[in-house]
Design a protein around this nucleic acid. Structure first.
Lengths: 189, 189
DNA sequence: TTCATTATAGACACGCGTGTCGATTTTGTC
DNA sequence: GACAAAATCGACACGCGTGTCTATAATGAA
């Protein structure tokens, strides 16, 4: 029944999201979270024993709405080309604001705490993309490609550019070049 | 003239390489370097004021022998397909032993100290690969591709897979799938 | 071998993040 | 409104990495 604690918990999660998005996982300290939430050490620790558990919880609430969840669209029978285009656009948008994404934090979390998160993350993405491509091929919209090759190419170049774009100013043309390559690779002309 | 100091400096660099390769940049402390070199704090600090300078110096000595330095081969007039094959093989080898490569350390160094390192690193790689592809096209070995698109695809998927392979066990098939895609993309059949 | 120069040892004080714990305030039930 | 339970505060001790400084040891030129 509402319980103050649950609200506070929720509030902490919401308030710490930008911290992780901006600074990654390792760079965020409990002290930072204290300041971001205006809670004291004691108050904070009574909700989360450490940044690891906090971040873990944060991931659960976020992973649900993943940009690359094509299932619904495919069930609706939407055009594969359109679904692809939307995904590419969303990816492109994300690159423009790398500070809003948890991707690097997830990487660091996997590095220092639990690698299985990345495995899960990756195999999910592989599965979803594979389904989309199979779908597109079945509908005759996509070329007959080697699914494994294409999916890995897409996902890893996405990861690569995503991480680098946090550090160096990756030119929009560069992002577009990758997207364009993916498009050409898949769409029948 | 020989000067003990220079030798020690050299020794420190050589001894700290594996530390950075294994642990990245941020995770390496001066204390770690002390232990790896059997030097005391004072001894070490009289050579390098911090890990940043140490790593910077380390980069200089390493970056010379880059796996993707195609210039010499192209000047010799070697087959573009062969040069490509060698590069892909070397990349594949590197993935097998991610703990021996400085790639993640470079990323972290760029993140925390100086991003221009990555920019330099990247634009060099772009230039070299572009030249190789232009060379292969001129020789009629490679298809007439969009150089920008292909080069970015190659480099970013390489980066992506390289970083992830430090954390999750990327299957050899996956690496091979990427390499295979690159090959198909370039080589005329 | 001598001795000025150079290199090294290791103790020190400092800053910062952690996790804990008793005191205090707030909640919400009766 | 009273009062037990729940939530929060903030001071504390601890570990760890940093950078400095002086005494000591090694070097190598005369």
């Amino acid at each position: 029944m509402a319980t103050k604690a649950e609200k506070t918990r929720e509030y902490i999660l919401q308030a710490s999201y930008p911290l992780f998005a901006k600074n990654g996982f390792k760079q965020v300290t409990m002290k930072d979270v204290c300041e971001a939430t205006n809670l004291s050490r004691g108050g904070l620790y009574s909700h989360f024993p450490g940044t690891a558990e906090l971040f873990q919880e944060l991931l659960k609430t976020v992973s649900v709405k993943d940009a690359m969840d094509f299932d619904r669209e495919m069930e609706k029978g939407s055009s594969a080309a359109v679904i692809l285009e939307n995904a590419l656009t969303q990816m492109e948008e994300e690159m423009k604001r790398p500070q809003d994404s948890l991707s690097v934090a997830i990487y660091e979390y996997a590095e220092t705490v639990d690698g299985s998160v990345l495995m899960q993350y990756n195999s999910d993405a592989v599965r979803r993309w594979s389904e989309l491509i199979r779908y597109g091929m079945k509908r005759g919209e996509f070329r007959e490609v080697d699914i494994d090759e294409i999916v890995n190419m897409i996902l890893f170049s996405y990861q690569g550019i995503r991480m680098w774009s946090r550090i160096i100013q990756v030119k929009p043309e560069t992002v577009r070049a990758i997207m364009s390559h993916i498009r050409k690779e898949l769409i029948k002309r």
